[in-house]
Each structure stands twice: as structure tokens, then as C-alpha cells.
Amino acid sequence: MILADFGTSYCKFLDLSSPGKGPVLTPTKDIPRDLRVDLATGHNGKRFSEHYVNELTALARGGEELIDEDEYVLLDCGSRDIKFVAYRNGELADMGWNVECGASMGFTIELLERYYNLDYDQLPVPDRTFSVTCGVLGMSHIFDAVSSGISEAESVARFVKGIALNAFRFAGLPDTLYLSGGLCDNKLFTQSFPCRLVPLGRFVLLKGLEKIAEERF
């Protein structure tokens, strides 16, 4: 049984019939149009599968598997959206999904690294930040800052920190935040959060699908 999380920039696959073989990551642009999987989630998932699981449900189920606590907040930062689930007493207490204002944040962060030829692992967390609610609008802050003489690296770092703070507020300002998604590997981003951060990596939704597959099939 093949499970897949079809994201905007990357797709993640897990073959349950090959235990021991871990998940596989593939850029979305390389996915053949006629690909079919057994159970899918993610932005593009419906096109590639008969059985589709809502992204928030997959995130929540993945969190239940990976987080051994009764109270927690789990935030997923994707290429085009941000979403979170908050649990209290082992039950869902709050949730949110921001596609409109969270638009393109992850995508923009990746784009900027390549455009300005930066390495996020080497950039220090800046003291100052931009107020960023949307990736696209945030770009204009960078251009303004660069034209006012601030270095490209510092401007981008302020932008990345602004995105982290915005995501933190969206998740309800928790003391500890579990993070899901590709941005877990971005040191500048993860260190920009003003709380304890626990990165869970980019396969949390896939873990959720695994749990759902066990329950349903």
C-alpha cells in the first residue's frame, strides 16, 4: 500500500509493503501526471488517489502518533499554507488553517535563499524583524530594506524571522511548539521562534496517513 503527502513543492511517499524502507521525498514538479497511490493527503492529493485524507486530519493523527503528551500545539509550515492543531487533555481543543494570509511563506523562503545565494544555516538570527503576514507582501519589505542600504542577508533574515513570529502568533503563542514540515531543517527559521521548538520533520502527515491506513484498511 502506497501512502503519499502531495505538497506544493515536495511530495513524500511511504510504501507500507516494504517495511524498513523509509519515506521517499520527490519534488512535486517531477511527479508523473498519471501516478496513482492508495491513500493520499496534501494540496494536490485528490488528483492522485481514490482515498483522500484532509490535511489537518493527517497532521492531527500524525501528532497523536509522534507526541507523547496530552497537551501540545503542533504547527505545520508548508510551502503555501500554515496550519496547527492544539490538544488539551488528549483531545482537540483548537485548530487553524491559514491559506490566504499564510500564502506562499515557505515557498518564498526557499526562493529567496536561491535568489540571493544564501545559506540559512550560516545566517544569524537578527535582532530586528519585519512585520510579515504574507510571503508576497513580505518581499516588498526586503526590496525596501536592501535599497535603504541593509545587506541582502540581513534583510532576508529579518523576513524569515517575521514569518516565524507570525506563525508563532497564529498557533496561539504556546510555550512549546512542535513543528512539522520542510522548514524544520532551516536553522534560521527554527531559531527565530521565541519559544521552545521541537522540530518533527517533514513526514508528520505521512505518519498520520500510516495511522489512518492501519485503522481503516
Binding site: 484532509n54 490535511e55 489537518l56 486530519t57 492531527a60 482537540l92 485548530m95 488553517w97
Partner: peptide, 10 residues
Amino acid sequence: AKIQAFLELS
């Protein structure tokens, strides 16, 4: 999707 997930997870 938000409504669906909310009802399902509740």
C-alpha cells in the same frame, strides 16, 4: 476542509 477536519477530529 477546516470544517471537515474539525468535525472528524471532534
